[in-house]
Design a protein around this nucleic acid. Structure first.
Lengths: 129, 129
DNA sequence: CGTGACCTTCCACTAAACTGGAAGGTCAAG
DNA sequence: CTTGACCTTCCAGTTTAGTGGAAGGTCACG
């Protein structure tokens, strides 16, 4: 399969496949006599795996790690489970952070909605912030 | 006041002040005869305002907008209120997004915690993802 | 033979908010 | 006179996941 066909099968662009190769997520592809990359069918599964990882919010580096564990013949499952656990912790932290920020902004905003715009203290630039 | 002193008073570095000047958040500073920037006391208030804006999650561009409204003599309060409202909407959207992602990841993770690592289907690279 | 749809490589660019470092100027204290 | 702590400018790099484009090669079709 040529690169465009493979990419289309995975819902990506050819550019993205070259980029993944550059980042080590795809092994260097076989080449046809004319120099074109020639992909095996499994490459599509690999790309779909990458997509699922992205959907789970993993970075390409993390997905690359999973793939290299897998590529040396080990089952990456335990590694994947640990990554997912870490991802859960990270998400919880980010959500907590954003929620706290939201509370701060809501306070500012409520004050702004209630306040009198004319009461701006020149010292503070804007009394709402 | 020299740049380092001003920066320290606002809890920032001199580099950051130069950067803010470059981005238009600080007007070009007066210069002492030796070429050093010479800041007025109010600059610290302005920097603290920038800090509050950052704390509220506003971008430097948004803060810059507020500051320029203010600098032409208008009270930026209404503008600020609108920005805060927009910020609230953005935060809610981001939190919802991350919460949805968390649910997806939690599903994967629960499957991984329950599953048998030996059951990896080679076709799928890892049955947990 | 020409055209269009592929493919190749390589380089630059995107957003955000700085940070690091090089090369050099200024100034008060010892 | 030297040392050290400041200051100046300018250039480059950090992070992520690609995207855009230039310049050129390949190939089937008409």
């Amino acid at each position: 399969m040529r690169i465009g066909e493979t990419a289309a099968a995975a819902g990506m662009t050819a550019k993205t496949l070259r980029f993944y190769e550059d980042r080590g997520l795809l092994p260097a592809a076989d080449r046809a006599p004319n120099g074109y990359r020639d992909y095996a069918q499994e490459t599509v599964s690999r790309l779909e795996f990458i997509r699922r990882g992205r959907t789970a919010g993993l970075t390409l580096a993390q997905i690359g790690d999973i793939l290299s564990v897998r590529d040396i013949g080990e089952a990456p499952c335990i590694h994947v489970r640990d990554l997912l656990a870490k991802q859960l912790r990270d998400l919880d932290a980010r959500i907590a952070e954003l929620t706290a920020l939201r509370a701060t902004v809501a306070e500012f905003h409520d004050a702004a909605a209630a306040g009198d715009p004319a009461a701006c203290d020149p010292e503070r630039i804007c009394s709402y912030l």
